[in-house]
Design a protein around this nucleic acid. Structure first.
Lengths: 137, 137
DNA sequence: ATACAGCTTGAAGTTAACTCAAAGTCAAGA
DNA sequence: TCTTGACTTTGAGTTAACTTCAAGCTGTAT
């Protein structure tokens, strides 16, 4: 599969694909004798994983670390397992923030729905009744 | 409330708070006669909203646009309402990506749980059985 | 065989969102 | 009064993640 096809399939640019390979977000991609990238099913699998995790905010560095461990072989299975579990916690925590924001957003939208009738609204930052986290540590 | 207290309450730096005010993510904050920021309850409300929406990935530009409309008065209520609804759609779409990543992550973790027994694992990018989006438009 | 679109590389440039530094101001305590 | 420490502004610097550029290959169609 050519780089162009992979771009289209995942909705990212060929520059980004080459960048991912260069910095190690995915392992080296199979090439034609002329040196042109020819993505195997395995390569595609790595790209899919990278795109999926990147769009959930996983940093490049974490993905490269995973690939680095993967290339070291089976002796790093435990390390990769630990890394994945930590990554899952991160994504769960991030998603919670999205839920908080959705609650706040819904509150505001309901305030505006009422305001659309009266034509006036002074203050829309009141207590939203949701569980947005406002205190840290 | 001093800038320091607000920092602590929301877990962000004073530089960030001043930056938010400077670029218009929040309206101008109340000051003491000496010019020192003294956050009112209203100011805190704006900060809470900004922090909440920022941690759900809303860009600075969208927040400043909202504040800009707010300052223009009640004639922008409809515009703000539209902006909020669009923002909610964005957050919902983003959250879906987090759910996809969590599914993929769970699949990988289960593969590793099995691998931890056998001590070997060749390929962990197989079909994860989840609904990760791999085709675009 | 020659054009020409599309690929290659490494390096430099861009963008968003902070983050820091320098130099000055203010208020309270010794 | 002097010092200390927290505050101020302005403007420059940093970081992550691409993105663009320049200059040179590849490979297919005429």
């Amino acid at each position: 599969m050519t780089i162009k096809e992979v771009c289209k399939r995942f909705g990212i640019s060929s520059d980004t694909l080459r960048y991912y390979e260069r910095v190690g977000v995915i392992p080296e991609v199979h090439r034609t004798p002329g040196g042109i990238r020819d993505y195997s099913e395995e390569d595609i699998g790595w790209v899919e994983t990278a795109v999926c995790f990147r769009s959930a905010g996983m940093p490049i560095e974490l993905l490269t670390e995973y690939v680095r461990l993967y290339r070291e072989g089976d002796c790093t299975i435990a390390a990769r397992f630990a890394l994945l579990k930590e990554a899952r916690e991160r994504i769960l925590a991030e998603r919670q923030k999205y839920d908080d924001a959705l609650n706040k957003m819904s509150y505001k939208i309901s305030v505006y729905e009422r305001a659309m009738q009266t034509g006036k609204l002074d203050w829309d930052n009141g207590p939203c009744g949701c569980e947005c986290q406002t205190e840290k540590e």
